[in-house]
């Protein structure tokens, strides 16, 4: 089989479980673009793919783990971050990525999100934000812009949405960026940057959901979504995250907002214990330079 590699092949194929194609995502969905960008980022950074794991929760984005040909874990709803924390703790040499939707990560999983950021768990967290619970048919989510329509907000949502970069920054993330699926080059670059950045990195990707969110809110098809991102996104690197909230039909502030350094969870643990316990401390193999 391996001798026949001359066949025409999409360069992303070695990274994907082609035996699971076609995937479940709708045409016009943005999740495939995120997968594509991730592959490009890995190709450019010549990462050891065997030392990389992908962890997902439940939902449309949660299915990424199943298509990515690495050690991959499709866990429970809202819980990919604590699973990934366990995996990273057991294997500090692994590069652990979490891909999940906004409902998974900041609604049901919101508590894990803020605490992992607070502790600076060494995880790369990619949140695909499509403003709705798409897999279950379009219920209102934690980032749904005010007044948008959902099956469980049929007259429009009245709950204030989360501003995710602000939430991540104030919780302690060391890297915070937001792009849309229109910004593929920037997205790849951000993924490359966080690949080697120790600590809790957070990347929000605004993604179109033409089948559910856009149709219900009369926002057009997938192409219309991309056109909207192109026309209404404003790149403001270093923007004050308090000002990057998203309004229905409004501008989308994108860019790299935060890039700072502080000890990771395991580094901090190692420092504290070696300081306090001295010779009695038998260091846990964190892979951290001591």
């Amino acid at each position: 089989m391996s001798k026949e590699t001359n066949k025409e092949m999409n360069p992303v194929e070695p990274y994907l479980r082609m035996d699971r194609m076609p995937h479940i995502w709708c045409s016009g969905c943005g999740i495939g673009i995120v997968v594509n960008c991730f592959v490009r980022a890995l190709q450019k950074s010549k990462v050891d793919i065997n030392k990389l794991a992908v962890v997902s929760g439940i939902g449309c984005t949660g299915r990424i783990a199943g298509y990515f040909k690495v050690d991959s874990f499709h866990t429970t709803h809202g819980r990919p971050i604590p699973f990934a924390t366990g995996l990273k703790t057991a294997r500090p040499d692994m590069n652990v990525w979490v891909f999940s939707g906004e409902g998974d990560l900041v609604s049901i999983g919101g508590n894990h999100f803020i605490h992992a950021a607070r502790r600076n768990a060494d995880l790369k967290v990619i949140c695909v934000n499509n403003f709705t619970y798409a897999m279950t048919g379009g219920q209102v989510g934690p980032t749904a812009p005010l007044h948008s329509i959902a099956t469980t907000a049929p007259y429009g949502t009245y709950d204030q949405p989360f501003n995710l970069p602000f939430l991540a920054e104030s919780s302690g993330a060391v890297y915070v960026a937001r792009w849309t699926t229109f910004h593929v080059r920037q997205l790849v670059k951000s993924m490359q940057e966080i690949k080697n950045k120790p600590g809790f990195s957070f990347l929000e990707v605004i993604a179109p959901c033409p089948t559910i969110y856009q149709r219900r809110n009369r926002l057009g098809d997938g192409l219309a979504g991309m056109r909207y991102y192109k026309e209404r996104s404003k790149v403001v690197n270093g923007a004050d995250t308090r000002n990057v909230d998203i309004k229905l039909g409004g501008d989308i502030i994108v860019g790299k907002f935060i890039d700072r350094d502080r000890p990771t969870q395991l580094e901090a643990m190692d420092q504290e214990l070696s300081h306090k316990l001295g010779d009695k401390y038998v260091p846990y193999p964190t892979g951290v330079e001591r």
Binding site: R79, P82, T85, T89, L273, Y281
Partner: peptide, 24 residues
């Protein structure tokens, strides 16, 4: 910490019960 082990106190029992599985 005296035997080369690691204990992390999690934010809740839900997190604890799945962090162990990532580590397993």
């Amino acid at each position: 910490p005296m035997v080369g082990g690691v204990f992390l106190q999690m934010e809740d029992e839900i997190g604890s019960s799945i962090a162990i599985q990532g580590a397993a």
